[in-house]
């Protein structure tokens, strides 16, 4: 009984600490963003791509567009791999090979992002350089690195969803004379739509929030959109300029504004996820 009370207290303490930390982050970022908006307005920074914080130019358009472009590119590049891996793991492999396959995918989920960035420097950047004749640093390389990063996460979620499709649906389809491919496209995938959407949103979240792997290959310039020239995202610019503008300096508020935008984008993703969950239950 006493142990139960202690356990409950520990749990509540952990929850309280979590809430306190989260509130602290939100208050600090929100206060800085508020000061920034008060001084610079809300719309101006969002439609300008001129970023020179030491000269008080705080246009973040290039970083917002960069984040969305790199994330979108990663999702497009990852999609075929995710589909292939999840279908292989869920519908083709059975028994021990299937378990080994899932373990290997899980292992790739656990690889630190700096390792993916290193891979990007060693493989993706030279590849783009050879294919395009450019320096190789830019959103295209970043998109490739992110695609490789999100494939395992997205694949595992998709794989688990595909495995949950009732066998009666599959057998019914096959029994009516549909081929394996027709069953996959017209029965299994539509039946897994809600779970796949959730996996998709988790992958978007991971791609949008990734920093170090992207920073290593993107080039670091404030440019609205060129896939083959150096660019930047919200997260990479935050990393680059944190050193330049420590807390309680005017430019730091601009970083808080950027961080707030990231948090808003993430909050929208979480909201969408909950909507998708609701759909799947309904």
């Amino acid at each position: 009984m006493r142990a139960d009370r202690i356990a409950a207290l520990v749990m509540k303490g952990a929850l309280a600490l979590f809430i306190a930390v989260w509130v602290m982050v939100a208050v600090i970022v929100g206060a800085g963003a508020w000061r920034f908006v008060s001084a610079n307005g809300l719309v101006g920074p969002l439609v300008s791509s001129r970023w020179s914080p030491l000269a008080a130019h705080y246009g973040i358009l290039a970083f917002v567009v960069g984040s969305m472009a790199v994330t979108g590119l990663a999702l497009v590049l990852a999609a075929p791999g995710v589909l292939a891996l999840s279908v292989t793991g869920a519908r083709i492999l059975r028994g021990a090979p299937q378990r080994a396959f899932i373990q290997i995918l899980t292992l790739f989920v656990a690889v630190p992002s700096v390792v993916y960035g290193w891979w990007g420097l060693s493989v993706a950047v030279p590849l783009i350089r050879r294919l395009t004749g450019t320096a190789g640093f830019g959103p295209l390389s970043a998109g490739i690195v992110l695609a490789v990063m999100i494939v395992p996460t997205f694949s595992i979620m998709a794989l688990q969803t595909l495995r949950q499709v009732p066998s009666s649906l599959v057998e019914g389809s096959l029994g009516l004379g549909a081929s394996e491919d027709q069953t996959l496209w017209h029965v299994i995938l539509p039946a897994s739509r809600a779970g796949l959407s959730q996996g998709f949103l988790v992958a978007v979240g991971r791609a949008l929030g990734e920093t170090i792997a992207v920073q290593m290959v993107i080039g670091g310039q404030s440019r609205v959109l060129s896939l083959l020239k150096p660019g930047a995202t919200l997260t990479t610019q935050l990393l680059t300029d944190l050193a330049l503008m420590p807390a309680r300096t005017p430019g730091h508020d601009a970083l808080d504004f950027m961080a707030l935008w990231l948090m808003i984008l993430m909050a929208v993703l979480v909201w969408l996820q909950s909507r998708v969950r609701g759909m799947s239950r309904g």
């Binding site: 303490g13 309280a16 509130v23």
Partner: peptide
């Protein structure tokens, strides 16, 4: 009582983190 415990824990954690 559990609500009081929770608020107490939150107060301690919050003061530690915020200060």
């Amino acid at each position: 009582s559990s609500r009081r415990q929770f608020l107490h824990a939150m107060g301690v954690a919050g003061s530690g983190v915020l200060l």
